[in-house]
């Protein structure tokens, strides 16, 4: 995908509205493109700010004094049916206000891992019969012999990429620790809670992969979980 195409898709990407395939493509592009990643971070920062705006603003004066005289006695008002234009729209609850990105990241990764693991368990499908489409990080880190030979497991092929993830995470975690003191306590707690969720997703994916080291699906899930953690850390330290 070109930079222009990625930038076109960013609105839907940050909103979680992209089809899985496009979402994966955008995510892969962002991993390798600093410029687009900066755009994404700027967009997410704006959305976080918007989501954090107060629900309530007090008017400068008591408006009731102007409202009360305009209220006609109930008897004099025509008895009208519930406004259908309103009622149709209120059958469901008022939409929740947008969530900050770290909540979405953790919620989505936890949901993906949980449902995918359940699906794999229920279907009894561990190893993919089809050739394993290794994640991008694994593809980049994979030695040519491993890619063509097929002898190493998907887990083994992913290992170099996993080491890269672990190294990047290890660099960011201390930075986050030092910055935590400057964050609002609620923000710091929320980030921490959601990092724990992602860590749990990593653990679960890894345990499943250890039992089924040839599963490309599990490798992809593990890669996605690492990527989510890295993403959360990167954005958290840039707050």
């Amino acid at each position: 995908m070109t930079h222009e195409r990625i930038l076109d898709l960013l609105d839907d990407f940050v909103g979680g509205d992209l089809p899985p395939r496009d979402e994966r493509d955008v995510r892969r592009h962002l991993m390798g493109c600093e410029g687009c990643r900066a755009e994404e971070q700027s967009l997410r920062a704006l959305l976080d700010q918007a989501a954090a705006l107060s629900d309530e603003v007090a008017p400068g004066r008591d408006l009731w004094q102007a409202i009360a005289p305009r209220l006609q006695p109930r008897d004099s008002l025509p008895r009208e049916a519930e406004d259908p234009a309103i009622e149709v729209r209120v059958i469901g609850p008022r939409p929740a206000r947008p969530l900050p990105w770290w909540m979405l990241a953790a919620a989505s990764i936890a949901l993906v891992v949980t449902t995918s693991l359940m699906t794999l368990q229920l279907s009894g499908r561990g190893a993919d019969p089809a050739p394993a489409p290794a994640p991008i990080a694994a593809q980049q880190a994979q030695p040519p012999a491993a890619a063509s030979g097929g002898t190493p497991t998907a887990l083994a092929a992913f290992r170099p990429a996993e080491q890269d993830f672990e190294k990047a995470i290890a660099e960011l975690e201390p930075v986050l620790r030092t910055q935590r003191g400057r964050m609002a306590p609620q923000t710091a707690a929320t980030i921490q809670a959601n990092l724990r969720i992602i860590d749990q997703a990593i653990e679960e994916s890894r345990a499943a992969l250890a039992a089924d080291p040839n599963s490309a699906e599990l490798t992809r899930m593990l890669s996605d979980a690492y990527h989510s953690k890295l993403n959360v850390l990167r954005r958290a330290v840039s707050l």
Binding site: I67, Q72, E80, E82, D83, I86, E87, V90, G92, R94
Partner: peptide, 25 residues
């Protein structure tokens, strides 16, 4: 909004929370 809500309130059947209805209004 509040004057309109007063006028339409008799037709509110409570199929949603009042605050939701009012927000949409």
């Amino acid at each position: 909004v509040f004057v309109r809500a007063w006028e339409k309130l008799a037709g509110f059947q409570g199929r949603s929370a009042f605050s939701t209805w009012l927000h949409r209004l």
